Simulated assay, not measured.
Amino acid sequence: MVAQEFTVDLNKPLVYQVGYLGESYQEWVHQPIVSKEGPRFFESDFWEFLTRTVWWAIPVIWLPVVCWAISKSMQMGVSLPLIAFLVVCGVFLWTLIEYSLHRFLFHIDTKSYWGNTIHYLLHGCHHKHPMDGLRLVFPPAATAILLFPFWNLVKLMSTPTTTPALFGGGLLGYVIYDCTHYYVHHGQPTSKVPKDLKKYHLNHHFRIQDKGYGITSSFWDKVFGTLPPMKAAAKSR
């Protein structure tokens, strides 16, 4: 007897449904539904609230932390030129983290119940509903938790006096990333650079989803050979 294939009911909370898709999950989650109205994730209003974040909350919450971190290095006597260099290095470090997370974690293949469920919460929901504006940036509560391992990583790479500035640069890189990500989905760029960035990212969503992992730039895609084929990129124009 062949088991009946599970069908997701889009009118019911999705998070606890997607796990039952099993091996069909990957195909399902990469068939986008282009609608600005996002689905409901949880029956609980509390957990549902935690999944929704307005884009402007990211700079409002985290830019003061960036300034605080940089000021800590200044108070410990680090020169302004060195602080500027550390901030730039932190932003650059973030671009590598951004690429690595997107490629190796957010696009991991899953088929188990909890694997599918966790993947959907992390990134699958964004590919299924790419225009859901309230689930595009990372929830601040989750970011706060992830800042602890990021701080410890930065500590391994720097001295006690330079760690705060390097950390601040990395956090600034994250803020730029999340705001850029929101903009390429919902903004209407008129100049060449943002227009090309928007085309590049939407090509990842709607044409070749296993290439083009960079959000703020295509630099690491070029370095690691995950640049989308030029013909596919041209079609998205």
Rank of each mutant, 00 (worst) to 15 (best):
M76Q: 15
V60I: 15
L80T: 12
T51A: 09
W56E: 04
W55K: 02
M76E: 13
L80I: 11
L63R: 01
S71H: 06
V78R: 10
G77E: 04
F49D: 13
M74N: 11
T51C: 10
P59C: 04
V65Y: 01
S71C: 10
W55P: 01
W55A: 15
L82Y: 08
A69Y: 02
E48A: 08
A69N: 07
T53H: 03
W62Y: 15
W62H: 09
V78Q: 02
W55T: 02
S79E: 10
L50W: 15
F49E: 13
I70W: 03
L50K: 10
S71G: 06
P59Q: 03
S79K: 08
V65I: 13
P64A: 04
W62K: 00
I70C: 00
V66I: 12
P59R: 01
S79W: 06
F49T: 15
I58L: 04
P59Y: 02
T53W: 03
S71Q: 07
S79F: 09
L50E: 08
S73G: 05
P64M: 08
A69T: 09
C67I: 13
C67V: 13
L50D: 08
W47N: 04
L80D: 10
S79C: 11
L63Y: 02
W56M: 12
W56V: 14
I61H: 05
T53N: 00
P81S: 04
L80E: 10
V78M: 08
E48Y: 05
I70N: 00
R52G: 05
W55C: 05
S73C: 13
L63N: 05
